[in-house]
Amino acid sequence: MSTITTQDGTQIYYKDWGTGQPIVFSHGWPLNADSWEAQMFFLASHGYRCIAHDRRGHGRSNQPWNGNEMDTYADDLATLIETLDLTDAILIGFSTGGGEVTRYIGRHGTARVAKAALISAVPPLMLKTAANPDGLPIDVFDGLRAASLTDRSQLYKDLASGPFFGFNRPGANVSQGMIDWFWLQGMQSGHKNALDSIKAFSETDFTEDLKKFDVPTLLLHGDDDQIVPIGAAALASAKLVNNATLKVYPGAPHGLTDTHKEQLNTDLLAFLQT
């Protein structure tokens, strides 16, 4: 397997498809690089080099006890980019991965970055606070943690069969394949790593990181996202990122990388070619 080694010795797996300008994908929780297959196959087929890693504690990467927070996620991404000596790279992050990309730019800048895209992404802040009244209450995330400790296999099945893909909506075209695929990836994550990551994606404030974006940026979100509601996410981020392009998918759920993959692939290619 292709791996890189981080500063604390963690082995990070990555896949590397195609040739051309590099695109680096950061995945959502509790998934891994395989969740990007539709986008990677499409964009690699259109002349791009597509690279996606399994975040520490997820998929085929090591499961370290420590480092399951955004600063380390961002530094791991930096190690990947620097080890592969990528330049003029396009960073694309989904959900938690959108936070990872955002913190990377906040910590490491854009010297190696040409463009960025945040899809169904968690920034600026998911948690409801006095300064972020549109966020979700801490009870939501405490509930996720409790469910993970009680029966995380069932939690992943419930998320996939319900709000993640919008399969709990009337008339939804439910795919058992998508449900199984989400569950399988979730169960490949480390129990401690996935549990810690709930705090990382929900309580990290990316406001100052977003203000450091100085490359063309696409913010793409579904307005029926039940996992990362658009109000405290893309709509808020659009006010912080200079010259960001905001694209809203009417009726789309959180997991639109699968449910709306044809539309997303077309929009991403158009953004890359602009």
Rank of each mutant, 00 (worst) to 15 (best):
D214Y: 00
A236K: 15
G190K: 09
R107Y: 00
M187G: 02
L125G: 08
A121E: 05
T150K: 15
A172P: 03
Q154T: 15
M178N: 15
Q176D: 15
I138Q: 15
I179A: 10
D223C: 02
L235Q: 15
V101L: 04
T204S: 11
F165K: 12
L240T: 10
G135C: 07
A131L: 13
R103D: 00
D205Q: 10
L219W: 07
L127K: 10
K199G: 04
L144E: 01
A172R: 11
N193G: 12
V122F: 01
R145H: 09
V101R: 03
G135K: 11
H191N: 12
I198A: 02
S237C: 14
D142T: 10
D180G: 11
K128C: 02
M187R: 01
A146I: 08
T217S: 12
A238N: 15
G186D: 11
N132V: 13
I105R: 09
P123Q: 06
I230N: 03
G231F: 00
L144P: 00
I179H: 09
N193V: 01
T110K: 07
P170V: 07
Q154W: 06
R112Y: 03
G106F: 02
L159E: 04
I179K: 09
H221D: 08
A232W: 01
A146S: 13
P137F: 05
P133R: 09
L118W: 03
W183N: 12
F167H: 10
F201V: 08
L149T: 10
L235K: 15
N173S: 14
S197R: 00
A172M: 10
R103T: 09
D224R: 13
V101E: 05
F182N: 07
Y156K: 07
D158A: 14
P137M: 05
T150Q: 15
A114M: 02
D196M: 03
A147M: 07
T207C: 03
L195C: 01
I138Y: 05
S161Q: 14
T207S: 13
G143A: 12
V101D: 09
S237L: 01
F167D: 06
A234S: 13
A236M: 06
I198D: 10
F165R: 04
N242E: 12
I179G: 10
